[in-house]
Simulated scan of single mutants.
Amino acid sequence: MKFITKLQRISLKAQVYEYLKQAIINGDLKVGEIYSEQYFADKLSISRTPVREAILQLQHENMVEVKANRGIIVKPLLLDEIKKIIETRLAIEGYSSSILAKNLTTKEGKNLIYLLEDNLSKQQEILTSSDAYYKFMKLDLEFHHAIVNFTNNNYFSEIIKMLRSRLEIATLKSLHETNRLNDALNEHYLLVNDIKSGDSQKAFQAFKFHMQKTLEIMEQCYDT
């Protein structure tokens, strides 16, 4: 019974986390305003424990700042932080792309290429859907996480998961405001093609190009 209760609590914490995260991304929670744990507990009709646990995860992802005895503040995402995230992504994901290029002939490598190409087909299909931006962002996350996970390096995977979560606001904003969907998809195709060439340097450079274009677009959307 205790085990079931623990599972239920973990599930509730995950739901609260997703609720708060989406509220931040959508702008429902305003940057700089203070929100108490009790405010969310009352709003969701739950205890403060899962709220507190969800807030701690958001704090770990640098999305909120916890003020002792006051509550939480949504942290602004500034261009300087975006640049640092892009630099870190290049180091980890560029390396991961080169590792995949070197291991194309393995069973794992072949399977991943199949999954990446299937993901690209889905990206292509949703371009004209009504909620294309949200669907594309989800597929984009799956695409990039799959390449990083290929390294079997849990540290890489956890770091990228955290950074991508923090970057979701900027990702959605840049996709929507600049209509970047087609360009991002083409860059994904280029990356997969260069990985399939088996040339690790070409794979790294393709990912570097993707990050350079991503940063250029985000610079258009954000002030310093």
Rank of each mutant, 00 (worst) to 15 (best):
H176A: 09
E37Y: 15
T5H: 09
K2S: 11
K21C: 07
R9Y: 04
A203S: 04
L104F: 04
F136H: 06
N103K: 15
S97W: 00
Y189D: 01
L90H: 02
K202A: 06
Y19Q: 07
K196C: 04
G27I: 07
E18W: 09
D118G: 12
P76V: 07
E158M: 11
Q124H: 12
F209K: 14
N182A: 12
V66P: 04
V192F: 00
K196P: 00
T214S: 12
F204H: 02
T88L: 12
T128K: 14
V74E: 03
A14F: 05
E142M: 09
Y19T: 15
D131S: 09
I217E: 08
C221H: 05
I160G: 00
L175E: 03
A101C: 05
K75Y: 06
Q8L: 14
K6T: 13
F204Q: 00
Y189G: 00
G32E: 12
T178S: 14
R52F: 07
S97E: 02
I126P: 01
G198A: 03
G71C: 09
I25L: 10
K208R: 09
Q57K: 13
A146Q: 10
K202T: 01
D183T: 13
D223W: 12
P50G: 01
R89M: 11
Y17W: 10
A132K: 12
I92C: 01
C221A: 08
L116V: 04
F3I: 12
Y114A: 15
E142Q: 14
I24M: 09
E18N: 10
L78Q: 11
K2L: 10
L112F: 05
L29M: 14
F207Y: 15
F3K: 15
I24P: 01
H60V: 06
I147M: 02
N179H: 14
M162T: 14
N103R: 12
L139A: 05
L181F: 10
G71T: 08
E37K: 13
T178F: 15
I24L: 08
Q124C: 07
Q123M: 15
I113N: 01
E108M: 10
L56W: 07
K208H: 11
H210C: 01
D28S: 14
M211E: 13
I160E: 02
T88K: 13
L77R: 03
S121N: 14
R166T: 05
E216P: 05
L185E: 05
I217Y: 05
N26H: 11
L77W: 05
F209H: 14
F156T: 01
S97C: 13
A184I: 09
Y189N: 06
K30L: 12
D194K: 15
E125P: 02
I85E: 01
Y39A: 08
R52C: 06
T128E: 09
A184D: 09
L127D: 04
V64T: 06
L181G: 01
L56N: 08
H60Y: 14
N62S: 11
S97N: 07
E18L: 13
A170E: 02
N153S: 09
F207L: 07
D140K: 03
Q212W: 06
L181P: 00
L191T: 00
R164T: 05
Q59I: 05
T105C: 06
H176F: 13
S165M: 11
L185V: 06
R48V: 12
